[in-house]
Amino acid sequence: MLDQKVILITGASGGIGHATAVECAKQGAFVYLAGRKESVLLDIAKNIPNSQVLTYDVTDDSQVKQAFTRIMKQSGRLDGLVNCAGVMLDNSFMMTRVSELQQQLSTNTVSAFTHSQLALRLMAKNRSGSIVNLCSVVGEQGSAGQSAYATSKAALSGLTKSLAKELGSVGVRVNGVAPGFIETAMTQSYQGEKRQHLITSTALNRIGSAEDIAAVVTFLLSDSAGFITGQIIGVDGGLSL
């Protein structure tokens, strides 16, 4: 589905980012693996021959610009961007520090904004491209104890829809994927009754996998989704029902 396409994936060292990189490569894409954990990314790249590691902080504007300059020099194009970098800090509303809100906004929302701006410069030249943002069921429905995280993800959903309306005229599609309870390092702290409650609240009665999300992201990056834009697609096993 992605033969000869060039894809940038932020947060590629995480579970969903890693799985998405593997799936994109299987579908024929050249993948840029972006993140801060260079050793982890290099290990991942060993199993993805058509890939390259870009080590930088997605919240640092100068480092982001340098990464895109490198992509331009080496590939001369960018067909797909997956804004997968994210952080989740659970806390009650009364105990949430403004610094925790700012950290989640910076990583989950602002980085997607800046990456999409720079990606557009490359995509608009070919009047073609696909941006996929990793949103969340929490951003769509809210969640007690996750007010800051929900704020950052709800903002990302708003950005997704606004960009879809604005960038459609230059051939760039923008969509979001809203995962439910997915088995990743980010959700490892969910154990015991809390974990079981989430499972029983999911219609399919199971935890989702990173591969479940990667399959949908890859589809949205492909030409098969050529008439899909501005959508926040829930991949949550029915948790949001």
Results as ranks from 00 to 15, higher is better:
1 M>G: 12
2 L>N: 00
3 D>F: 07
5 K>V: 00
9 I>Q: 01
13 S>P: 05
14 G>D: 08
16 I>S: 14
17 G>N: 01
18 H>Y: 11
20 T>V: 07
20 T>C: 06
20 T>D: 07
22 V>W: 01
22 V>C: 02
22 V>F: 03
27 Q>N: 15
28 G>W: 09
29 A>I: 01
30 F>N: 09
30 F>V: 03
31 V>R: 02
33 L>H: 10
36 R>I: 05
43 D>W: 04
44 I>P: 07
45 A>T: 10
48 I>H: 03
48 I>S: 03
49 P>Q: 10
50 N>A: 12
51 S>H: 09
53 V>G: 13
53 V>I: 12
54 L>N: 04
55 T>S: 15
57 D>M: 08
57 D>E: 09
58 V>D: 05
58 V>S: 01
59 T>G: 01
67 A>S: 14
68 F>V: 00
68 F>I: 02
69 T>F: 13
70 R>T: 10
74 Q>R: 08
75 S>C: 13
76 G>Y: 03
78 L>D: 04
78 L>M: 09
82 V>G: 07
83 N>T: 02
84 C>G: 11
89 L>Y: 12
90 D>C: 12
91 N>H: 14
96 T>H: 12
97 R>S: 14
100 E>F: 12
101 L>W: 15
102 Q>H: 13
110 V>I: 15
110 V>R: 08
113 F>A: 01
115 H>I: 09
115 H>P: 12
117 Q>C: 06
119 A>W: 01
119 A>H: 10
121 R>G: 13
122 L>I: 01
123 M>R: 08
124 A>Y: 00
125 K>Y: 00
127 R>P: 00
130 S>M: 11
131 I>A: 00
134 L>P: 04
136 S>E: 00
136 S>I: 03
138 V>H: 08
138 V>F: 13
141 Q>N: 15
145 G>D: 06
145 G>A: 02
146 Q>R: 14
150 A>P: 11
151 T>N: 08
152 S>Y: 03
154 A>I: 04
156 L>H: 02
163 L>N: 02
164 A>V: 08
165 K>W: 02
167 L>A: 13
168 G>L: 01
171 G>E: 05
171 G>F: 09
179 P>G: 06
181 F>Y: 14
182 I>M: 06
183 E>T: 11
189 S>K: 15
191 Q>W: 03
194 K>L: 13
195 R>Y: 11
196 Q>T: 14
198 L>C: 04
200 T>N: 14
201 S>L: 03
204 L>H: 00
209 S>L: 12
209 S>N: 10
214 A>Q: 12
215 A>T: 15
217 V>M: 08
218 T>W: 01
219 F>A: 08
221 L>R: 09
223 D>Y: 06
224 S>W: 08
226 G>W: 04
232 I>W: 07
232 I>H: 01
233 I>S: 04
233 I>N: 11
233 I>T: 07
234 G>M: 09
235 V>Y: 05
238 G>E: 04
240 S>N: 10
